[in-house]
Design a protein around this nucleic acid. Structure first.
Lengths: 222, 222
DNA sequence: GCGAGTCATATTGTCGACAATTTATAATTA
DNA sequence: TAATTATAAATTGTCGACAATATGACTCGC
């Protein structure tokens, strides 16, 4: 573990990538209203960069799904609805199932300790009633599982999916000021990880996902 | 079904997108050697377009995984190895499992007929000993399942994964001149789709993926 | 007053040029 | 000669400007 204070990865050295991070953060933090148009000229000048550079960054955010591009008509901040969230969760369940299966044989003392540590961090955030921190910790915990799986393509898929979850949470956090202590602790995962029943673990994963989806849908019952 | 002669989707109206299709086709068809550097200037002039436009297209191919970019050092045609193929297949299995589950309730006469038709096309290609056609038909058949599932995000994930498979096949087809009649017919799928045992279908899917991976690995045993 | 057509404006798509960085080549030194 | 540094060439990153398209205002005819 090299950095503990935040999920700060070393910012990429090219301006395009830095811009990408900036934009993604802005969207995910709710600084850009969903559905609003992203005017290339104004954003570019506001960031002090050229349009070409901005466009390259925006193109990737379109790939991730945070932006939507209509040729010749502009690029808009994605509006995630309940259907989108349902799709996100069902895909996520599929991905994590693969990850868990690949991690299963790697269970050992150090990994379980790491898992418990990350769970404690999450629980702290929950008890501190820090929704952003809780979500961040939760996603971070799962990211760690993907990394542990050693499945590069899987990790990449998750990294593409993750911002959508952050976005959805922040979107409603900002809109309704709620969605606070919705993240569940991962005690059950730890208990199952200590056992020998992979099927039970996968079943619990499905449950966890279903509940996460349900709670999120309920929370955002506008 | 609007177009039957080929998997020709209407080319996007923007030059960037047309370039994207062109480049992807070139790579997937094996016209660019894996590991070789993609010189922006020469490719751009060769295609008669500007570098900026080419870069936008290339960026997306980096996202898909067909290209690899090293900042300030250039972009290279991806080299897919056995590990990559294994990852691709395991992810694919996960994705298709979701798709099949979502398609399960949509089984009816017209969909089964469509499935049988597409299987026949595939079998024809196999018996004609047309490897490219067989692979294209196989992937097309599966794409149809993803579309039927109605899961937009899932389809998108598949569309990102698919070119990698095409690439890998073509890569070794070109290199070794073999890999011909390796695609299996989908008779078993059809049989199971007519039945009522979803679990059996999913198990067969796992088998099918495992066999596909094994055959492909064996075929590319350089 | 309302719709079709025309024109001006705003915005995106594309291009060529310059700056930053890397890679290749030549000169230098131990 | 081999390693190292300095220099030149090639390549990528970034920028500002022009072209193509869409959006909105306006006119005209009914």
């Amino acid at each position: 573990m090299k950095n503990d204070t935040a999920d700060a990865k070393p910012p990429s050295d090219t301006l395009k990538d830095r811009t990408l991070d900036t934009l993604q953060q802005m969207i995910v933090m709710g600084d850009m209203a969903p559905g609003s148009k992203v005017l290339e000229t104004s954003v570019a000048t506001s960031l002090g960069i050229s349009r070409a550079t901005l466009r390259e960054a925006m193109n990737r955010l379109v790939e991730v799904g945070l932006l939507v591009n209509l040729p010749f008509r502009g690029t808009y901040v994605r509006k995630l609805d309940r259907v989108d969230l349902t799709e996100i969760y069902s895909l996520r369940a599929g991905l994590e199932k693969i990850a868990f299966q690949m991690c299963w044989d790697k269970r050992n003392l150090v990994n379980l300790a790491e898992l418990e540590f990350r769970n404690e961090v999450l629980c702290d955030k929950i008890s501190e009633n820090d929704p952003y921190g809780a979500i961040s910790s939760e996603l971070h915990l799962h990211s760690w599982c993907y990394e542990l799986s050693g499945h590069g393509l899987l990790l990449q898929s998750w990294e593409r999916l993750k911002p959508n979850l952050q976005f959805y949470f922040a979107m409603h956090q900002k809109a309704h000021g709620r969605g606070g202590p919705l993240r569940q602790s991962h005690d059950d995962y730890i208990r199952l990880a200590k056992g020998d029943d992979l099927e039970a673990m996968l079943a619990h994963l499905d449950d966890h996902m279903r509940q996460g989806l349900a709670k999120t849908l309920e929370m955002t019952d506008w």
